[in-house]
Amino acid sequence: MRMDALKFVGKRLLLMIPILIGISILTFAISNTIPGDPARLILGPKATPEGLEALREDMGLNDPLYVQYGRYMGGIFQGDLGQSTYSQKPVSADLIRYSPATFELTLFAMVITVLIGIPLGIISASKKDKIADQITRIFALIGVAMPAFWLGLLLLLLFYLKLGVFPGSGRLDSGMSPPTYITGMYTVDALLTGNWPVFKAAVMHLVLPGITLAAITIGMITRMTRSSMLEVLKSDYIRTAHAKGAPENRVLYGHALRNGVMPVITLLGMAFGHALGGSVLVESVFSWPGLGRYAVNAITYLDFPAVMGVTLLIAILFILVNLIVDTLYFFIDPRLKHN
């Protein structure tokens, strides 16, 4: 069984390579066909044609596209993602600097999603067509239908400006210094170093952007859990459990939940990717210094190496998360171990 799981993971990791090559070609091609000249953006409106030409030559922009791509990929294998034209720093250094904030926010949103979405889905399924189900349905629909930036603004308006219960921007209160760097995620680092005031501030700052980011995924997970649970509750082994004399709650949590949660886990992998993508908007609304905001800036300044770096990183993360999800099945469903 262990061997099977390892073999499975190994195979999937190998499969990642062609996927990533495909993604890199696509992103590279797209970012190079966008009209706009990075050299002109760097040198500004007063640039001379000679200066522009020299910089283009220097940046390798005059080479054929496949040469540029080959040079880029050659660099990647040496850990070199190129130089960000906007921040004037290596893209890899920027990614290391900005990604912990995004991971923290995304993970927080996923935790909220699991803690709220799955229980709501279960309640919805067990009280099918009753009031609890209807209310959950409405909330789930609102969550899915509401654009993230709009919800973010509403939350800011209410909880930050009007009520003042949650902070509205950044990762920490102003003047507060970040905890000792371990993972770069302030909550985790603060916990590890036992820095309670910082931990509390970091969590408070996560609440509004976290809810904004999670709204859609909560809605998705709630509906999925509901329909999956309803399907499971109709099955013969649930009838067997009732025939054994198992009380309602035991049937629901002991028999139905584990079977019903499987498609939900797959969706969670997808939701994670969705949240990573969604962070671009949410980070802008909440001035969250993460990858999303970095990506928005990079796009505005036609900073191709940075855009490529962010895209590849998110793609790798998305594939890895889905790999973890698929591996989880091995531990939940015994049928996979033996086939």
Binding site: S235, D236, T240, K244, G245, P247, N259
Partner: peptide, 25 residues
């Protein structure tokens, strides 16, 4: 609740399809 105390205890049932009637997990 009272019926649950009888089910599987004093009165048991066996169903048609034993594969779907058993919990796969």
């Amino acid at each position: 609740r009272k019926l649950e105390k009888i089910r599987g205890n004093q009165v048991s049932m066996i169903f048609q399809d034993p594969l779907t009637s058993l919990n796969p997990l």
